[in-house]
């Protein structure tokens, strides 16, 4: 059974690599954040699989922290960044705001 775990871990990692497209494409901020949350879930499973493969159970703690901190990133997004970003994209949709020079600051 243990022989399957490395393959599973690599498969999940491949899943993350493919999922990176969502971060690139979006289209909205919420899509990107959800993709990041999906990666966190995959990473938890990867770390747990690695823990079983290597027999080092300290890694279970790492997975534990992943799960807690993923919640934090999600809550930060919802409560701080989301509305500001949505407003900005609404502005952009209704015409470029004055003085918007793109990347310059």
């Amino acid at each position: 059974m243990n022989q399957v775990y490395p393959f599973l871990a690599a498969g999940l990692l491949l899943n993350i690599v493919v999922g990176l497209v969502r971060i690139l494409r979006g289209p909205t901020a919420a899509d990107r954040m959800l993709a990041a949350e999906m990666f966190a879930t995959s990473a938890i499973v990867i770390v747990l699989l690695l823990a079983f493969v290597t027999g080092s159970f300290a890694l279970v703690d790492v997975a534990l922290i992943f799960s807690l901190l993923a919640a934090l990133a999600c809550v930060t997004f919802v409560s701080r960044a989301w509305v500001a970003l949505e407003q900005a994209s609404d502005d952009a949709a209704s015409g470029p705001p004055p003085g918007d020079r793109g990347d310059t600051q």
Binding site: F77, R80, L85
Partner: peptide, 14 residues
């Protein structure tokens, strides 16, 4: 970083 974003007026990039 995420919290800083709401204060840095988000700009459309290139």
């Amino acid at each position: 970083l995420l919290s800083a974003l709401d204060r840095l007026a988000p700009r459309r990039g290139r």
